[in-house]
Simulated assay, not measured.
Amino acid sequence: MDNPELSRSLRLQAASCRNLGSPFHGDLLDHAAEDLEAGGPVAAVLTPWAQADLRKLFDDAMPLRLLGGLHDLVLSGDVPALAATYPRSGRGADAALAWIAARAAIIRHQDRLAAFMTHEPQTNEVRRSVCLAPGLLTLAQETGLPMRTFEIAASAGLNLNWDRYRYRFGDVAWGDPAARVAMDTEWTGGPPPVDAPVEVIARAACDRRPVDLTDPVQRRRLLAYIWPDQFERMDRIRSAIDLALALEVTVEAADAVAWTARVAAPQAGAVTVLYHSVFWQYMPADSQAALARTIAEQGARARPDAPFAWLRMEPAPDQMTNMEVRLTLWPGGQDRVLAEVHPHGAWVKWLN
């Protein structure tokens, strides 16, 4: 292909994967870029982006779609030659050998891989709850009220169960010691208010294209976007999926703007919390503006006995490479940054 931005996007995502702890995926993408530049078969599955600029490639997360599609082939068990080259717990992997197998799989399963890549990536990183939960504890402490929690862009709804997990925030812990899902993080700063009384009296979630965990194909798609050399992440999401299935968690298929207007109005006797993570940056500007207006309208309806909160884990407005947890609370609309965080929850710098 004549578009140099394609290989550039693959190499930039390769560097990002390494920085986020996946050297295998970083090396695999570098091999994919070399293949593309040499006119190899990877070009065929990138045809929908043949004329895309760098912004479009990253808005569509094209490199992650390619990685997810290859991992999906591995998880399906249908391409044992490729699966044999992927990392396993206790065994490293040679990305050069993996690329040879991946290249053969791209040729043989081109249509299947291309079909997988038509769907935007949907992740449901459970460890983002370790970033969001301290904000929810802060709201419990500051309002002293039961909570109604509503998540938008919830994917499979795994972070809807935030209060059913066990956490360690530095020297302090919170949550049921017997929880099926436990997580820690590299914590700096003072402790969050782990003594705050937490009572969730309502919870719901929406997504434009929710993942149905009862469907094995959709469940595998979710797992495919977990990087294969990050075994702890894979174990954690499997446990979270098992819990969500046991609790029969559901996510409504709905537009975030209309859903927020319909279900998230403040209610007397509780703090209503709208929250999301790593979602805002993927919305078109007009959708961002519409959702911001709807949230402000809900906030304007808040009263002292019916507060409304907007909690989000998103890139900082002025620096897209920095992720932060921000809270706005009505009445009043006070807005503040609670923490700086790693995109996958590996570390949290608590500022509150």
Rank of each mutant, 00 (worst) to 15 (best):
D2W: 03
P4T: 10
E5Q: 15
S9M: 06
L10A: 12
R11Q: 10
R11P: 11
L12N: 09
A14W: 02
A15E: 11
S16T: 15
S16V: 13
C17D: 07
R18Y: 06
L20N: 12
G21F: 06
F24I: 02
L29K: 07
D30G: 12
G39C: 06
G39R: 10
P41L: 03
A43H: 04
V45I: 14
W49D: 05
A50P: 02
K56L: 15
L57I: 06
L57V: 06
D59I: 13
L64Y: 03
L66Y: 05
L66Q: 05
L67I: 11
G69R: 01
L70R: 03
S76H: 03
S76M: 09
S76Y: 03
D78S: 15
A84G: 08
T85R: 14
R88Y: 01
A101V: 01
A102D: 06
R108W: 00
H109Y: 08
L113C: 05
A114Y: 00
A114C: 04
M117K: 09
H119P: 00
E120C: 08
N124E: 01
V126T: 10
R127N: 11
V130T: 14
C131G: 07
A133M: 14
P134T: 08
L136W: 01
L139G: 05
Q141Y: 01
E142V: 13
T143G: 08
M147I: 15
M147R: 11
R148S: 09
F150L: 15
F150V: 07
E151S: 10
E151R: 09
S155W: 00
G157E: 03
G157V: 03
L158D: 00
L160W: 00
N161Y: 07
W162N: 03
D163E: 14
R164C: 12
Y165I: 10
R166Y: 14
A179Y: 05
A179T: 06
A179N: 06
A182D: 04
T185W: 02
T185E: 03
P193V: 04
A196P: 04
A196W: 02
A196M: 08
E199M: 13
E199I: 07
A202R: 09
C206P: 00
D207W: 00
R209N: 11
L213F: 01
R219I: 05
R219W: 00
Q230E: 04
F231W: 12
R236K: 11
R238E: 05
R238L: 10
S239W: 03
A240E: 05
D242V: 11
L245V: 08
A246R: 08
E248S: 15
V249Q: 04
T250A: 15
T250I: 05
V251I: 05
E252I: 12
E252A: 14
A258V: 10
T260R: 07
R262V: 01
P266M: 12
Q267E: 13
A270R: 08
V271F: 07
V271S: 04
L274R: 00
V278F: 09
V278H: 05
F279Q: 03
D286R: 13
A290F: 08
T294F: 01
E297L: 13
R303P: 00
P304M: 11
D305M: 02
D305H: 12
F308R: 09
W310L: 13
P315N: 09
A316R: 14
P317S: 14
D318S: 15
D318W: 07
M320N: 12
T321Q: 14
N322C: 15
V325I: 08
V325E: 01
V325T: 04
G332I: 09
E340V: 15
V341C: 14
H342T: 07
H344G: 09
A346E: 15
W347M: 10
K349D: 14
